[in-house]
């Protein structure tokens, strides 16, 4: 919650629904989410998927921008360690997200709003679980408002 003088806190409107942006790599996680769809496994509609070729394409700037444009949480999902289509992409992502979460926390934003997971092409159920857990987490945290 924002506590600076220019940004008084206001309770979320009662009809508030979280907005969660998910960056999924093309080769594993997006296919996994697709599988969840084909298998008719439901997941929380608060999560919107953006496909990137590799989780390593996920520039930390995208996450900051998503928050700036109104996202309440961000999921980054890639292939399991060792399985990245481009060999190293997900390891780079791992390091980026660890540092990004520290930065986000220093800005006074809960680091739980940035989630990193590994979901393979065969893990439709795991994707649905991830999305649901994150949606629940963000509902608990409430809306994110950046202090400008």
């Amino acid at each position: 919650m924002v506590m600076t003088a220019e940004h008084e806190t206001a309770p979320p409107p009662s009809d508030w629904q979280p907005r969660i942006v998910a960056f999924l790599c093309n080769w594993c996680s997006y296919t996994g989410a697709d599988l969840a769809g084909i298998s008719r496994i439901q997941w929380d509609p608060a999560v919107s998927i953006l496909r990137v070729m590799c989780s390593g394409r996920m520039d930390p700037t995208f996450v900051a921008k998503a928050f700036q444009l109104g996202a309440d949480g961000v999921i980054i999902s890639g292939c399991h360690p060792g399985d990245c289509h481009y060999q190293e992409g997900n390891y780079k992502t791992l390091r980026r997200v660890h540092l990004l979460r520290r930065l986000v926390a220093e800005f006074g934003i809960e680091p739980e709003r940035v989630k990193l997971v590994w979901v393979s092409a065969s893990e439709g159920d795991r994707w649905a679980e991830t999305a649901n857990e994150m949606a629940e987490q963000i509902r608990k945290l409430g809306p994110l408002r950046l202090a400008s």
Partner: peptide
């Protein structure tokens, strides 16, 4: 080993940080 990420990465550009000013919970 990175003691002050915000102060180091935004030492000159804090007014333009995408994440805004720091939110104080204290």
């Amino acid at each position: 080993g990175i003691l002050d990420p915000v102060g180091t990465f935004y030492r000159f550009s804090m007014a333009k940080a995408t994440l805004g000013r720091v939110q104080i919970h204290d």
